[in-house]
Design a protein around this nucleic acid. Sequence first.
DNA 1: CGCGAGCTTGACGTTGTTCAACTAGAGTGG
DNA 2: CCACTCTAGTTGAACAACGTCAAGCTCGCG
Lengths: 230, 230
Amino acid sequence: MAKPINTDECLEAFCGHVTHGELNAEDKQLLNDNRVEVKYNKGENICKQGSFANHLIYIKEGLTKSYLEEDDNVQTLCVNPANNILGIQSVTTESVFHYSVAALEDVYACLFDMKAVKVIAKRNAGFAYELLIHSNQNQVLTFDRLFSLTMKQLHGRMADIILCLHKRVYQSDTFTVNLSRKDLAELTAMSNESATRILKDFKDDKIIDLDGKTISILDKDKLIQVSKFG
Amino acid sequence: MAKPINTDECLEAFCGHVTHGELNAEDKQLLNDNRVEVKYNKGENICKQGSFANHLIYIKEGLTKSYLEEDDNVQTLCVNPANNILGIQSVTTESVFHYSVAALEDVYACLFDMKAVKVIAKRNAGFAYELLIHSNQNQVLTFDRLFSLTMKQLHGRMADIILCLHKRVYQSDTFTVNLSRKDLAELTAMSNESATRILKDFKDDKIIDLDGKTISILDKDKLIQVSKFG
DNA sequence: CGCGAGCTTGACGTTGTTCAACTAGAGTGG
DNA sequence: CCACTCTAGTTGAACAACGTCAAGCTCGCG
């Protein structure tokens, strides 16, 4: 059983990365009184679509993936870098999570009681505005994904997700992903086998290099080209 | 050329339907000083993806459709009922519209200067919270659409959009849509021809009735069934 | 050394698009 | 009032894209 811990560091990280100093002492105290820190092991579920969303999730450390599920169908939305909040939609809507989140590596999170978050959002315009910023950023990302997934063929979708991982998550031309072929397939809405084939095509065309789970972008221009017309 | 008009009615509708009375006299005045009312004719463009978003759009009257576009590809996001705001993403992100919107019928809109909206959002927590509500609702809808479009086959997607129009827009079992086959195809990410075929299948199976542009839902349970397993 | 999970590869079937021909209805001009 | 045209919608056939299935491969791990 995880031990309850409550470090200042985690609260400060939230205040710095998410609310950008918009919280006054009183609000900070309220948040501090209504939070817990949790470590999730790689592979564990952080939240489950459809279950009660009693807390807003701040990811201090570790990569996560968010995904939609229904019956046996899974559509991965995206891989999320650290310093991110999850479950923001549930602050204002009926309180269930609208997607599931799983830990791609060991994750350190801080859970804030939703009621406290709501109270602060309703009285602190700066905080509400920061939440709005996050919600909107999320929405724009979702638009990108939606367009990519519905209007592009396999090669374009795979190129998009590699570029997305590069830009949004790893910020390096070479990165080692904690993603199986199945994960990549669920990100790009294709079958495992197709994911394998497309990656091989990219490798044959010297667009990327593959070494196990390490992806190196060799020709970014071409990758962007494929993203557009592939 | 449209004449500048500024009716109280339009401002009051915005305050009632969007901000739910969260605006005080001062904020209301600021908004009133920074808005224009515009009528768009059926078929006209209300905003264009990628262009400067200098205003938040409140639709007082008339159906609209929002869509993503790139080159010649179009993915329609949804048909939007009246009493809705559009362009909310651009309040906080770099100021361009992230989607285009077109009028499906004559539309009466009120445009609020984005700077004024921003000023109010940053000082009025209630207003910011209402914007967050809208942004989040939007996001949840987009998740639904994303899942539908990526994980379901043609019949399921068409069933979903008929149900969406029924629930979100017309709220009646029989409704006349201002949508061509092409529009329906763009909503469901399929070809015109496929849209025709699927609708015919539904009619043959007595799930819906079709008379020109009027759709009648005959067997809602079956439609939901198709949405799930089609 | 052998086992099993994840990955790869090829053959084949399904789904949905594209293309082309045809039809129906709405608007136009003689 | 009747040809004429134009557009939206329909239909069928060919084709491409992609998923499914099955077999084989690789590599980490007991």
